[in-house]
Amino acid sequence: MQRLHLQGGFGEKGRTSVLIDDGESRVMLDAGIKVGAAPKDYHPQLACAASEIDALFITHAHEDHIGALCWLIGQGFTGPVFMTPTTRAEMNATLDQYAHVSDLARFPSSNAMIELFLPGDTLSFAKQKIKTGHTGHVAGGVWFSVESGGKRTLYCGDVVPESAVFPMTAMPECDMMLLDCSYGDDAIPASERAKQIVEWVLARPEGAVLPTPLSGRSLELLAILPGPLAIADVMYEPLKAQIADPSLLRPGAAERITARLDTAHRWHPGSPLPACPLLVHDGMGSAGPATLALEMAEQKGHPVLLSGHLPEGSPAHRMREQGRADWFRLPTHPTLPQNKLLWENSGRPRLLGHSSEAKLLNAMQQALPALVTTAVTGDSIEI
């Protein structure tokens, strides 16, 4: 028997977190924050005292999956934290931007007992066996298959089955699947979205600002954008680090992206916006060089293209609502046909969707009849 506690990301986007209790140990999968949320909803809703959580497993270093790490330590968590080397390398940059300042100062990530593993490794904690595999979402990102009590739960984290840059490992059959439903019933393939973005950029030879997460979508954009381009200077070294290990990328991707990076103009925040596409992080305009770049673009009427999730209240969301920025989704999560195939290949198990509001889940139910659309953060489910 396993008991799943939905601690964040169910019926909502952000603060993704699940606790799996097999009666002998409690392992927590991800510890995210919810950008723009009220203080009570910013961190995961823990199902037990943090000191009673035995271990934490992190899928990747995006804020909605790791941003609450310092807070969790402050709540009393002292167990090991499992993550890949790439996630470890990107962790502090994410925490610096999204963790509360007091948590960073009092409970730094250096206090965590970090255990490293590689995508594809099988881990064990107490009697819980945790298999891992590439997600296609970011370099070093993983899914977790947790087997204990005679049951298997598959937690996808964020996945991209058909990324042009990152590989995705086939997932096993399971009893319960926690599926990345960020895009609801969106069925438009990545190739069509990429074409839309390229056409938009080519129609604006004066340049444009493209906010993007530092990991994941930045490399996807570098792989598709034509002609000259620029990146914020502080992005160069982190992006080079993401492609340093070719085994974390699809064949040939490292060479193509290295060539783009090495010829890109490096923009320093505060200098004039370049007359070419400019990549700046983060994708919401809430942190990093994107904050200033969007302010400058807004003042000058410079084109802005958004391509990902826009939390309500974020600068990027406001600009789109006011008609001061355009938006084309570049898929870094699965479309509905991809989710259906993932579910079928995993044996058509019971199904929960994370990172999605109920209205999006309802739109998916015809294609995914096993999908429970009423589960919300705070619920517990026994399998």
Rank of each mutant, 00 (worst) to 15 (best):
S271Q: 15
S271Y: 13
S271I: 08
S271R: 15
P272R: 12
P272E: 12
P272G: 11
P272V: 10
P272Y: 13
L273S: 06
L273H: 07
L273M: 08
P274T: 14
P274A: 14
P274I: 14
P274H: 14
P274V: 14
A275S: 04
C276I: 05
C276R: 02
C276S: 01
C276E: 00
C276Y: 02
P277G: 15
P277V: 15
L278M: 13
L278F: 13
L279Y: 01
L279D: 00
L279S: 01
V280P: 00
V280Q: 04
V280Y: 08
H281V: 08
H281F: 15
H281Y: 12
H281M: 09
H281A: 07
H281G: 05
D282A: 13
D282E: 10
D282T: 15
D282V: 12
G283N: 03
G283L: 09
G283I: 08
M284E: 00
M284G: 06
G285K: 02
G285V: 04
G285E: 03
A287K: 01
A287F: 03
G288K: 04
G288W: 13
G288T: 06
G288P: 00
P289D: 12
P289S: 15
P289V: 07
P289G: 08
P289W: 12
P289Q: 10
A290G: 09
A290I: 07
A290S: 14
T291L: 09
T291C: 12
T291R: 14
L292P: 00
L292A: 10
A293I: 10
A293D: 02
A293V: 10
A293R: 01
A293F: 14
L294M: 15
E295S: 08
E295F: 11
E295K: 14
M296E: 06
M296F: 08
M296P: 09
M296A: 09
M296V: 10
M296W: 11
A297C: 14
A297V: 12
E298G: 08
E298I: 10
Q299S: 13
Q299G: 10
K300D: 05
K300T: 06
K300P: 02
K300Q: 09
K300N: 05
G301T: 05
G301L: 01
G301I: 00
H302P: 01
H302T: 04
H302V: 03
P303A: 13
P303W: 15
V304Y: 03
V304K: 02
L305Y: 06
L305G: 00
L305R: 07
L305S: 03
L306D: 03
L306G: 03
L306N: 03
S307C: 09
S307H: 15
S307E: 07
G308D: 04
G308F: 10
G308I: 00
H309E: 04
L310G: 05
L310M: 10
L310R: 08
L310V: 09
P311R: 11
E312M: 03
E312A: 01
E312F: 06
E312I: 08
